[in-house]
Amino acid sequence: TFYNFIMGFQNDNTPFGILAEHVSEDKAFPRLEERHQVIRAYVMSNYTDHQLIETTNRAISLYMANL
């Protein structure tokens, strides 16, 4: 899942690491979701930090390219 992918960046001092920290603390994050459209919609609806949203979009693109 995307959640498992992004958790691989925990403790990294990178934008993906920052995203992983936010996702791990977000109890409502769709952890079992595999459809990138649902993940993107969730982030757009629940996150207000523009940098975090952009990082999510980049992470989703990388995740999709590696499926």
Rank of each mutant, 00 (worst) to 15 (best):
R35Y: 06
A59Q: 02
H50I: 15
P30Y: 04
H50Q: 14
A20H: 03
G17L: 04
V43P: 01
L62P: 00
V38L: 08
R31I: 08
A65P: 05
H36T: 15
F2H: 00
T1S: 13
Y3D: 00
A65V: 09
Q51W: 13
F5E: 00
N57D: 13
F9Y: 10
R35F: 05
D12I: 07
E25M: 15
H36Y: 12
F16A: 02
M7P: 01
H50W: 11
L32V: 07
A28G: 13
E25Q: 15
F29H: 04
H22G: 02
I18A: 13
L62H: 06
N13G: 14
Y63A: 03
T48L: 10
Q10G: 07
F29L: 01
Q37H: 14
T48F: 10
L19P: 01
N4V: 09
F5C: 02
I6F: 03
H36K: 04
T56P: 02
D26F: 05
G8P: 04
A20K: 06
E34T: 15
E33H: 03
F9L: 04
N46P: 02
T14W: 03
E54I: 09
E33W: 03
Q51Y: 12
V23W: 03
F9N: 01
E25K: 15
F16D: 00
Y63D: 00
E21Q: 15
L67M: 14
N57R: 09
N66R: 05
S24C: 08
P30M: 04
A41Y: 10
G8L: 12
S61N: 11
I53T: 05
E54G: 06
S61D: 15
I39R: 00
Y47R: 01
H50D: 13
M44V: 10
D26E: 02
Q10H: 13
R58I: 13
K27Y: 08
A41T: 09
N13S: 09
T1W: 06
E34Y: 15
R35E: 08
L67F: 09
Y63K: 01
T1K: 05
P15Q: 11
A28F: 14
M44P: 00
Q10K: 15
E34M: 15
Y42I: 03
D26W: 03
G8W: 06
T14R: 02
N46L: 05
N13M: 10
E34Q: 15
F5D: 00
V38A: 11
